[in-house]
Design a protein around this nucleic acid. Structure first.
Lengths: 120, 120
DNA sequence: CCGTATCCCTATCGATACTG
DNA sequence: CAGTATCGATAGGGATACGG
């Protein structure tokens, strides 16, 4: 028999999985890392996140906004001015991204060595 | 002038970026989380990582192996038996993935709520 | 059992152009 | 300046088959 708890669990699981799929990608991580605790304009972000295209930036910002990880603030001036800031959940995820950055620094040499070995 | 240190830094940066691109994807994360501190066979992994295809699994395992995050052990029996285990750098990354899993659990409700709001 | 290769379709991505 | 839309090119990814 499938209980209500089971249903809730599997729903939570699939939601978690979905969030994972959304968020576990390099652009999202780089955007979150770049934002940090600052507030940045769209164009500032585009310049700061090396190699990201206009399209990828908007796409990922929408995704992050949809999941409530960034707040989007529109100043109805001309020209328009749109600013992005990490929300509290966003800051929480930032801790994860930070830990990955730390990991990368820590094991950079090991990884490079592993790559060298793998070439053979 | 571009000093040697500058060159080293930018090389380290681009390598770090490359590793980031490799590893910051959902399948890699799910594989790492699934492996944990266990040793699993290819087929066990495929069954354990929900929804992953044969192809994605091999592809990601090669990538992880190339970066020295998993160790691949081949038992030359018949039928063959191939086992995968996280290396020390792999375990390090696992901490990051764990932190992301914790984050997902923690903010699941907030995120769901944000999604509801965004629908409007 | 595990791995690679092939086919084939789809989603992704960059470039460009256009609107408010 | 910020955002959307469109269009090709290309990479991602599933299904399948076959080799070790």
């Amino acid at each position: 028999m499938v209980t209500k708890q089971d249903a809730d669990l599997s729903r939570a699981d699939s939601l978690a999985r979905e969030i994972f799929s959304d968020v576990a990608n390099k652009w999202a991580f780089l955007i979150i890392e770049t934002l940090g605790d600052r507030t940045l304009r769209f164009s500032e972000l585009r310049d700061a996140v090396e190699g990201i295209s206009h399209k990828m930036l908007t796409q990922n910002l929408r995704m992050l906004e949809r999941n409530g990880l960034v707040e989007r603030e529109v100043h109805p001036t001309v020209p328009p001015r749109v600013e992005y800031t990490l929300t509290e959940p966003g800051q929480g995820l930032r801790a994860t991204v930070d830990s990955m950055c730390g990991w990368t620094q820590r094991y950079l040499a090991d990884i490079e060595a592993a790559r060298g070995r793998f070439a053979r």
